[in-house]
Design a protein around this nucleic acid. Structure first.
Ligand SMILES: [Zn+2]
Ligand SMILES: [Zn+2]
Ligand SMILES: [Zn+2]
Ligand SMILES: [Zn+2]
Lengths: 158, 158
DNA sequence: CCCGATATGTTATAATATATCAACCCATGA
DNA sequence: TCATGGGTTGATATATTATAACATATCGGG
């Protein structure tokens, strides 16, 4: 499992490694990775893209894991609270974290053409510094960029 | 009109200066600042805070400027397209721009206690650099931080 | 005058998210 | 044993945010 998302990778390994990390975290921290929570995370990892809550719900529902919105929103609350999933505010969509377990300020690159979303990390602590200078204490950040990924950029030129 | 929002300022001057700038821009660029668009901008400037589309609509409606959602969403589309208003993704709310006319990557500081939102600017072009390194071409950014503003930070300590 | 571009009016609906309350499970300990 | 309480789930209803679709209006240029 590597950092960035516009390249091919061993997706099976990527999924199982993430699940392992999350399971360890849950047992260490005494929190429950219940069936619905686990399945939502798996779905997000398997699809490896940003998905809307209702898209996830449709899949859960087909598997008999619940058909009402609270089912998926509760699972997403849990997963985002513990950092296994991120919400992409610009898309109202959810994405499995690429570095679960480690605390980080993610930076998302959203391709407007193919809708791929890559997670990378903030290259500096400039935001913290700038906020501090104004007396503002940051607790969390939303950092997203919309544009064209390498692949779609090539197609656009061609 | 100054850059940041956790300080007192001459708000009357701030509003009229922004309106002047926007009017100049519109006549220069041959776009129409129609009554609904103008009033939505004024409302946002006067309140000087992030407002939901339906909050704005309620005010418009009371003034006889239209009572249906498309009225306010069309105005907001226009205003955001031209950079007079920003959407705060984290809040699904809208805020008048503090530097209309100039092209900029805004950085918003959102106080979770008093809900004040300050607009400042990105301190560096680190994001662009980081994205370029991955071959990604940024067209727009969403940069928001949630935390405590100086005032609420003091109250929290007290 | 007609046309095309831009903007508005109007109705309906889509898409996203939360509130509320009852029921359940299960570990803990009186 | 069995009350108790926290965490979780089931189920219904509703709130909030945003857009689709189509008709109408306005205004300038050809
Ligand atoms: Zn992450
Ligand atoms: Zn792409
Ligand atoms: Zn002001
Ligand atoms: Zn505050």
């Amino acid at each position: 499992m590597h950092d960035i998302g516009f390249a091919k990778h061993d997706h099976t390994a990527c999924v199982s490694s993430a699940m392992d990390t999350v399971e360890s975290y849950c047992s260490e921290n005494k929190v429950q990775l219940t069936p619905a929570r686990r399945r939502v995370l798996e779905i997000l990892l398997e699809h490896h893209k940003a998905m809307g809550a209702y898209d996830i719900l449709a899949l859960l529902s087909a598997e008999g894991l619940g058909s009402q919105p609270p089912v998926v929103y509760r699972a997403l609350d849990f997963l985002t609270k513990h950092g296994f999933v991120h919400k992409i505010e610009k898309l109202n969509a959810y994405l499995a974290c690429m570095h679960p377990g480690r605390s980080h300020s993610p930076f998302f690159l959203i391709c407007r053409a193919c809708e791929t979303v890559a997670e990378t990390k903030m290259p500096s602590d400039d935001l913290l510094t700038a906020a501090s200078a104004l007396g503002f204490q940051i607790e969390s950040t939303v950092i997203e960029a919309v544009g064209l990924c390498p692949g779609c950029l090539n197609e656009a030129k061609a």
